[in-house]
Amino acid sequence: MTAAVPNTAAENEVMIELRGVNKWYDKFHVLKDINLQVAKGERIVVCGPSGSGKSTMIRCINRLEEHQKGQIIVDGTELTSDLRQIEQIRKEVGMVFQHFNLFPHLTVLENLALAPMWVRKMPRKEAEAIGMQYLERVKIPDQAKKYPGQLSGGQQQRVAIARSLCMSPRIMLFDEPTSALDPEMIKEVLDVMIELAESGMTMMCVTHEMGFAKTVADKVIFMDRGQIVESNPPEEFFNNPQNERTQLFLSQIIGH
């Protein structure tokens, strides 16, 4: 596998910026002073124990969750409660979920063509052509006419990735994309993600697939109890973890 392209964040524009972001669920302080910059083309892997706030953090970036304090700036637009700005940002930010969340009442191709047609106002023919193009990229063009329920988990997740890509997003967010999959299917999804990463897409990925992190990540972030504990390039992160909490986490994961 080719080594990750060296981090050239300094000379690139900033795509995602979180400044002092705080969030509470009722009284539970789930995100504490998160500061983070993601440059264009950068690939970030976020890991950490469950309940550490990693999913919440990336769900704040496309406003599936609302932050209560601090600033989130995505592609130059600040996220506020302004609906038009939220929709504008969501057009540019694709998201892949743990449970795929394909639309079960639509065929695979309809799932793919829906957003380009209704959000980007593309004619059906063109939207479906784009859909087919991405289905080929995730290597399941023969499933276009099937319903999501007829596909395996790995295939569904690849369709979900293709569905996001059909909107030609500038940023892709992945929220534990392989945690609901059988071990046999994880690889096919990771292969698609690795290919996507190598094409230069800006990516933020919550995952525990450390192999994926080592292969493609520019930076690995470790979160615990709502805070970013450590943020380093993968070699540094895996070989020389600074924080005690990170060392413990890594020893548990790699111990398997």
């Binding site: 496309n62 599936l64 504008q88 930010v93 449970h99 829906l114």
Partner: peptide
């Protein structure tokens, strides 16, 4: 399921 709402939101609908 809540995921259906979220997926639609995430696509910018």
């Amino acid at each position: 399921p809540k995921g259906q709402y979220e997926a639609a939101d995430a696509l910018g609908l």
